[in-house]
């Protein structure tokens, strides 16, 4: 249906803050792309520029090859779901959803039909007469979604739509939104700072930091092959150990990992689930604490200089606190100056 193209877009606010810095991105037809990053990384600003609520200082934005950079939000074929819902509290549910259609001058019968259809799609059939304050947070968010979908936008924009909901509801809505998005095959840009959300929903993830893209890729790629220590640390749990490579081996406080890289400072990244432990006395590290989650356990480890690491163990009860262990990374990545210089993936 629609392709969104962002070309070398920058946004510099009046105070001189650079929110988005020369960013390019293409979202293909029917794709759901997540903008993921910590607060202040520019992801919301980027979304608001696509929606027309901020104007880029530089660069262009295209929808299906049409330049919309200077178009007012009401003229753009985009629809936004706001974090705060931004529902109009003086209108009931039906009127909230119908407002955009009424502006288009559709006949009343058609409006009714469309609104009822979309309310049913978001699971709110029969709620039309309710006032906004009579709805729960989750229902309000569904209304906001319906209000956007009813206009059949080319691009759907979601700005941390689940941030104000509790964990349980968030997971349910996440699935529902993903289902609807796939059913309608609507091109979607989704902003979140929650990695779970990004990993579970996105076709592709854009990890942002300081207004730039740190990595763009499929969720599994971003998770398994983080290109920078920032991405490695931001997505999932990651042990990041800074140390020195000397004579073909990474060393830090008793650990030694042979690596085929040049000497110099380096950051070693190992996922807890890729870090195996072998009991050894005195061992490279000491078990500090064991947390049993039932299906698996997390073992907190301490190196001799106090550095803490985590390991995921399927048999946590085989270990006890204070015991010495040797570390065996099954997969690891090595970074130098924020660039990947070596990757070893066994499995």
């Amino acid at each position: 249906m629609a392709v969104l193209k962002i070309e070398n877009v920058s946004k510099i606010f009046q105070g001189g803050t650079t929110a988005v810095d020369d960013l390019s991105l293409e979202v293909s037809d029917g794709e759901l792309v997540c903008l993921l990053g910590p607060s202040g990384s520019g992801k919301s600003t980027l979304l608001r520029m696509v929606g027309g609520f901020e104007r880029p200082t530089q660069g262009k934005i295209f929808i299906d090859e049409a330049d919309i950079t200077d178009q007012w939000p009401e003229r753009r074929p985009t629809a936004m779901v706001f974090q705060s819902h931004a529902l109009w509290s003086h209108m009931n549910v039906f009127k909230n959803v119908a407002f955009g259609l009424r502006l288009r001058g559709l006949p009343a019968a058609e409006i009714r039909q469309n609104v009822e259809g979309v309310l049913e799609m978001v699971g709110l059939a029969g709620y039309g007469k309710r006032m906004i304050h009579q709805l729960s947070g989750g229902q309000q968010q569904r209304v906001a979604l319906a209000r956007s979908l009813v206009l059949e936008p080319k691009i759907l924009l979601l700005d941390e739509p689940f941030a104000s909901l509790d964990q349980h509801l968030r997971e349910r809505l996440r699935e529902e939104v993903r289902d609807i998005q796939q059913r309608l095959k609507i091109t979607t840009l989704f902003v979140t700072h929650g990695q779970d959300e990004a990993l579970s929903m996105a076709d592709r993830i854009v990890v942002m930091r300081d207004g730039r893209t740190e990595q763009i890729g499929r969720p599994d790629a971003v998770y398994r092959k983080p290109l920078t220590p920032f991405v490695a640390g931001f997505i999932g749990t990651m042990n990041l150990v800074e140390g020195q490579v000397m004579r073909g081996a990474f060393t830090r406080a008793g650990i030694r990992v042979p690596l085929p890289v040049a000497d110099g400072p380096a950051t070693l990244a190992v996922r807890p689930e890729a870090l195996d432990l072998i009991a050894a006395e005195p061992g490279q590290a000491q078990v500090h604490r064991i947390t049993d989650f039932g299906t698996h356990g997390i073992v907190d480890l301490e190196l001799s200089d106090g550095t803490r690491l985590k390991s995921m163990a399927t048999q946590p009860n085989a270990l006890r606190p204070g015991q010495g262990v040797d570390l065996v990374p099954r997969a690891l990545t090595v970074y130098r100056e924020s660039r990947e210089i070596y990757r070893d993936v066994h499995d």
């Binding site: 929606g51 027309g52 609520f53 007012w72 939000p73 009401e74 003229r75 985009t78 629809a79 936004m80 706001f82 974090q83 705060s84 931004a86 529902l87 109009w88 509290s89 003086h90 407002f99 955009g100 502006l103 288009r104 906001a144 209000r147 956007s148 206009l151």
Partner: peptide, 24 residues
Amino acid sequence: RMEEAARDVGAGPLRVFWSITLPQ
């Protein structure tokens, strides 16, 4: 954001003022 949401669904600035801002 309420006003922005109205712009988003196609209301012009005057319409936003009349239908959203003033009633609120």
